[in-house]
């Protein structure tokens, strides 16, 4: 699974370049997120625009990633597609993340 990380000013944007985060790749995703968030000191936006499917394992891996963030800084999510958005809402996990329509709007926030 490819995570593409870029910096816009002080903000790290991590783009998931895969269409699924599911049970088959969740552990791999968690490892890659650990690498990507290793040096994070400020805002981090996880861009999920390409992801059109996530299951409970993938959701768990994103919650695990949130726990790697520096204290007091939330992991922000952007570009949730319908199926992904539904999973966050049904489990009420939408309430623990800052969620933006897209990475672009997240940068303006």
């Amino acid at each position: 699974m490819l995570l593409n990380t870029r910096k816009e000013g002080d903000i790290d944007i991590v783009r998931v370049e895969a269409d699924r985060i599911d049970a088959a790749v969740a552990i791999h995703f968690k490892d890659r997120m650990r690498e990507a968030l290793g040096g994070a000191t400020g805002r981090v936006i996880l861009d999920l625009e390409e992801v059109d499917f996530i299951d409970s394992s993938g959701l768990g891996a994103i919650v695990a990633a949130m726990k790697l963030m520096p204290p007091g800084i939330k992991l922000e999510l952007a570009g949730l597609t319908a199926a992904v958005d539904k999973v966050f809402r049904m489990t009420r996990m939408d309430s623990i993340f800052v969620i933006h329509p897209s990475a672009g709007t997240a940068l303006e926030a």
Binding site: S56, V63, M66, M90, R92
Partner: peptide
């Protein structure tokens, strides 16, 4: 059971979502 999300970050659940999703839909 519905997980308590009003907890310190370190205590947030990383699992147990499966049946919640099945039951929800």
């Amino acid at each position: 059971p519905t997980a308590d999300l009003d907890v310190p970050r370190a205590d947030l659940p990383e699992g147990g979502f499966g049946w919640q999703l099945i039951r929800g839909f």
